[in-house]
């Protein structure tokens, strides 16, 4: 099954194509503020380079985030509207899972980390590898790196950008044995994880697919806080 994967959730924009377990194309570049401008043209170029047209694609995988709110909106909207207009199935893949898949190391648990905009907070999730599949352990996490230590069980791989620094903090904080593996969201991995779900007969509803923000927007958080304060 030929699957197109895209991710514009953060510091990397990625387009990849897989056919079964064969990677036909995997293109990534540093994301600036030009994700919207580039992504569809990049999809076209990547398909052409692989000698394919969109009509050859049998399914679309899209990175849901978390990450840049604008970035994930662009990626998810492109992914779902391409699927809508071409009548192909779509599957959203959490970007934290994409990072975990990229950084797999035997049977060690993996904790993927994505920085939240400016500031010290991170998005994170822990995964357990079962062969080629990943099981998420527990909930998604939003908070400071130190707070992550409670989620880590034994020797864990930290996956993401700048994880060496996070590993240092965690070792210092809790003495947990963590190994840092730099990883960026790749298009082929998004496609591969979507293909796994398609193979299990799963897909997402095209029209209702939305990004995985993990954080309410500031205005909403403000209103909620205000309500709580006056309850």
């Amino acid at each position: 099954m030929i699957v197109l994967g895209i991710d514009t959730s953060g510091y990397t924009n990625a387009v990849g194509i897989v056919d079964g377990d064969k990677v036909l194309a995997d293109f990534a570049y540093e994301a600036k503020t030009d994700s919207l401008q580039r992504i569809v043209a990049d999809i076209d170029a990547t398909l052409k380079e692989a000698g394919l047209a969109l009509s050859d694609v049998e399914g679309i995988g899209v990175g849901l985030g978390p990450g840049s709110w604008t970035g994930i909106r662009v990626g998810v909207t492109v992914g779902k509207m391409l699927a809508f207009a071409s009548g192909k199935p779509v599957c959203g893949v959490p970007t934290l899972e994409v990072l975990a898949f990229t950084a797999r190391d035997g049977s060690r648990p993996i904790c993927s980390i994505i920085k939240v905009g400016a500031g010290d907070a991170v998005y994170a999730a822990c995964y357990h590898p079962e062969g080629d599949f990943l099981d998420r352990i527990g909930d998604y996490y939003v908070g400071d790196v130190k707070g992550l230590t409670g989620m880590l069980t034994g020797s864990t791989v930290l996956a993401g950008k700048d994880v060496k620094e996070y590993a240092r903090v965690i070792r210092k904080e809790s003495g947990t044995n963590v190994k840092a593996v730099e990883a960026a969201p790749g298009g082929a991995v998004v496609a591969c994880l979507a293909a796994q779900r398609f193979a299990r007969g799963e897909k997402d509803d095209v029209l209702s697919l939305t990004p995985l923000y993990l954080k309410e927007s500031t205005a909403k958080a403000f209103v909620n806080k205000y309500k709580r304060g006056h309850a």
């Binding site: 709110w69 909106r73 998810v76 029209l207 209702s208 697919l209 927007s217 205005a219 909403k220 209103v223």
Partner: peptide, 24 residues
């Protein structure tokens, strides 16, 4: 109504949710 005006981030999130349904 809830926020007493247009909050750009909230409006953009809503567009992402509604765009497919609206076109259909």
């Amino acid at each position: 109504k809830k926020y007493g005006g247009v909050v750009p981030e909230i409006a953009a999130r809503r567009h992402t949710e509604l765009i497919g349904y609206t076109v259909e």
